[in-house]
């Protein structure tokens, strides 16, 4: 069962990595597509019991995404680490069973994460206009939020009772 959990995590990550460029290519709004890896990182961080695990997951996911994209190595690693930390911190204070609060969390964290990507991009000399950055930051945050009601209940249930549930050593 333990391996199934990690296998499922890997599969979820893999599809989160490729779906925005494939399936959501057809469902993009003016070039705006969801950031599924960020959404997945938020979900994982919300359900981790330890901040270190949450941050570690964010760094690993981000680094793999950086390597997959092949450019600006470290940008997503740092961003998703911050996103994971923020999600973990907020999930500990908010009632994560509440869908509305989760929507607010996803929107806020996605907004912060995308803004960070925009900031880091500008910091290394990317020629992005402020309007474009604002449009993408808001667009992706909204898109992630829209996807949340369709994905969160299922993944939340799996984290609590299904294959994604963390099992302590004594339980294993």
């Amino acid at each position: 069962m333990r391996y199934i959990r990690y296998l499922l995590l890997a599969v979820l990550f893999f599809f989160s990595l490729i779906l925005p460029g494939t399936l959501f290519h057809f469902w993009s709004w003016g070039g705006v597509k969801p950031d599924l890896v960020m959404l997945l990182t938020i979900y994982f961080a919300m359900h981790h019991r330890s901040a270190v695990y949450a941050l570690g997951t964010g760094i690993i996911f981000g680094l793999l995404q950086d390597l997959f994209l092949g450019k600006y190595i470290g940008m997503y690693a740092l961003t998703l680490m911050v996103v994971a930390g923020l999600s973990f911190w907020l999930a500990g204070r908010w009632y994560r069973e509440n869908l509305f609060l989760t929507l607010v969390l996803v929107f806020g964290v996605s907004l912060a994460g995308q803004a960070m990507i925009g900031f880091l991009g500008l910091a290394v000399g990317s020629l992005w206009s402020p309007t474009e950055i604002l449009r993408l930051v808001l667009g992706i945050a909204v898109y992630n939020t829209i996807l949340t009601p369709m994905t969160y209940p299922w993944i939340h249930h799996s984290f609590l009772y299904g294959w994604l549930r963390y099992r302590p050593k004594y339980e294993r």
């Binding site: 390597l67 994209l69 092949g70 450019k71 600006y72 880091l120 290394v124």
Partner: peptide, 24 residues
């Protein structure tokens, strides 16, 4: 470190990326 890394692996740079290649 991340800013330096990003600078060194920008759009106009090429570098060995075996992990990324496998993923691709």
């Amino acid at each position: 470190a991340i800013l330096i890394s990003m600078r060194l692996t920008g759009l106009d740079r090429s570098f060995p990326n075996p992990v990324g290649n496998v993923l691709q």
